Lab assay of single mutants.
Amino acid sequence: LGPKYVGLWDFKSRTDEELSFRAGDVFHVARKEEQWWWATLLDEAGGAVAQGYVPHNYLAERE
C-alpha cells in the first residue's frame, strides 16, 4: 500500500468530501492533489475506517 502517514494536528472537516481526524491518527494516502490528499483513515489493526480529503500539511510520513 505504500507509506503510511500520521496526523500532526486535529482537523475538522468543512465539507462532505473532507475527513475529520485527530492528531496521531494513521492514514494511507491514495492520491496527492496539490493542497488536498485523498486518504483512508486506518484503525489500529490497519483496517479502513473512512475516506476523504485531508490537508497535506496536516500529515507527516510515518517512519
Rank of each mutant, 00 (worst) to 15 (best):
W9R: 13
D10A: 04
V49N: 04
K4Q: 14
Y5M: 02
E63Y: 11
E61I: 15
V49R: 07
H56P: 12
H28W: 12
E44L: 09
E34M: 09
D25P: 01
W37P: 00
G46F: 06
K32H: 05
L59R: 04
D16S: 12
R62W: 15
A39F: 02
D16Y: 07
E18S: 07
F11L: 02
Y5W: 10
W37V: 06
G24K: 04
L42D: 01
V49F: 05
L1N: 13
A45H: 14
E34C: 12
W38P: 00
K32I: 05
L42H: 03
T40L: 12
F27H: 01
L41P: 01
P3R: 09
A39L: 04
S13T: 02
R31N: 08
A23Q: 10
K4Y: 15
F27K: 01
F21L: 01
P55D: 05
Y5N: 00
A50Y: 05
E61C: 10
G46L: 06
D10C: 09
H28N: 08
W38D: 00
V29Y: 04
S13F: 02
V6Q: 06
P55E: 08
K12I: 15
A60I: 14
A50L: 07
D43N: 10
L42Q: 01
W38R: 00
W36H: 07
D43M: 04
E18I: 10
A39Y: 04
E44K: 10
H28L: 15
Y5Q: 04
F11I: 00
E17T: 12
V54C: 09
V29N: 01
D25V: 06
K12G: 06
L42E: 03
E17K: 14
G7Y: 05
S13A: 15
G47V: 14
K32Y: 08
P55H: 07
V29W: 04
S20I: 04
L41S: 00
F11C: 07
G52L: 03
R22W: 09
Y53G: 03
R22K: 15
E18N: 07
G46T: 05
D16R: 08
V49G: 04
G47K: 15
L8M: 09
K32F: 08
E18K: 05
S20V: 05
V49S: 06
R14Y: 09
P3I: 14
G7I: 05
L1M: 13
W37L: 05
D10S: 07
A23S: 07
L8G: 02
D43Y: 06
V54H: 05
R62H: 14
W38A: 01
W37H: 00
P55L: 07
A50G: 11
R31K: 10
Q35V: 11
A30Q: 15
Q51K: 07
Q51V: 11
F27L: 11
G2V: 14
W9Y: 14
A60F: 09
V6T: 06
E17I: 11
D10V: 10
D10K: 04
D16Q: 12
Q35E: 14
P3L: 11
V6M: 06
W9T: 06
E34L: 10
P55G: 03
A50W: 06
A30F: 12
K12S: 13
E33D: 10
G52W: 07
V54E: 01
L19R: 02
L1W: 13
V26R: 06
W38S: 00
G47W: 09
S20H: 03
D10H: 06
R14G: 12
G2R: 13
Y53Q: 05
Y53P: 01
S13L: 03
E18D: 05
G52N: 03
R62F: 15
V26G: 03
E33W: 08
F11S: 02
L19D: 03
G52P: 02
W36C: 05
E61V: 14
L41R: 06
D25M: 07
R31F: 13
R14T: 15
E61P: 14
Y58G: 05
A60W: 09
G52Y: 03
E18H: 12
L59E: 04
W36F: 12
H56R: 12
A39I: 05
A48G: 08
E34Q: 11
P3F: 09
Y53H: 05
E44I: 08
R62Y: 15
G24C: 07
P3H: 11
L19S: 00
R14L: 10
L42G: 01
W36T: 05
T15R: 14
E61T: 09
A48F: 12
F21V: 04
E18C: 11
A45S: 13
Y53A: 03
T15P: 01
A39T: 03
K4L: 15
